[in-house]
Amino acid sequence: MNEQPRTLYWIMLSLIGIVISIYVLFPVFWLFLASFKTQAELAQLPISFWPASPTLDAYKALFSPTHQKGQLLDWPQLIGNSFFIAISSTVIVLFFGTLAGYSFARLNFPGRDLILGGLLISRMFQGAALLLPTYRLMSMIGLQDSLIGLVLLYSAFGLPFATWIIASSLREIPKELEESAMIDGASRLQSMVLVVLPLATPALITAAMWHFVGAWSEFAFASILLESNENKTVTIGLASFVELFTLEFQYVGAAATIVALPIMLVFFFGQRYFTRGLLAGAVKG
């Protein structure tokens, strides 16, 4: 290919990419801008794009005790709850996912491939189909309206995929490394912890990110299982905003921005590993 068509090709591709990005990101950006506007500005016509006089009032209001008096939910607590659930279930998923992934990748046991395939299939059911059965089950064992219950539930949902990602990445690590470690005097556990896992970091980070983001943003199960206000999560908080303050869009914008922040941070720091983890084994390194 000579120089000119190639440049043109890249310009076209970039243009398409830019258009798609704008299409996807515009509503998010719009909400972000709304969080800096006043109620009056949001209600006026014609609609203004940039905030006329940007203000942090909406953010202050979210965290001000006085404002909360008239409000049902305590945002610092919602954020705390969400962090608790997302972080605990991520730790659980990573711990068991690593052990399970390792055994799928390295040990020979009957039905191994069948079970690994079954893990993936289990993720193909629509979550909605499981809502009611899950609710029944959780009430039966007394774990409805409990953060621990949600941690266990999310861990159960997250484990198959995490196991799968970790297993496929561990398969890429040459067996000889572990054999060498075992000849060098390592036990199986030592060879896993000292040699294999450091090399599987991208996959572990990917699995953790994936799960954290999923747990942080989960709405359906949280909304049917959590009843008392002090147990609710940020996603429920966002939803109740919409019901309570339909017209006070600046609060929704501010809350949504805060809720999006941890996820953006996670992606910002983990991005490098994320693509590597998902692509593990796709091409020869």
């Binding site: 000889e176 054999e179 060498s180 075992m182 000849i183 005097g185």
Partner: peptide
Amino acid sequence: VPKDRDIAMVFQNYA
């Protein structure tokens, strides 16, 4: 087990 056999091994891919 390998570590108790008092052997050392060099692998084809060096490992």
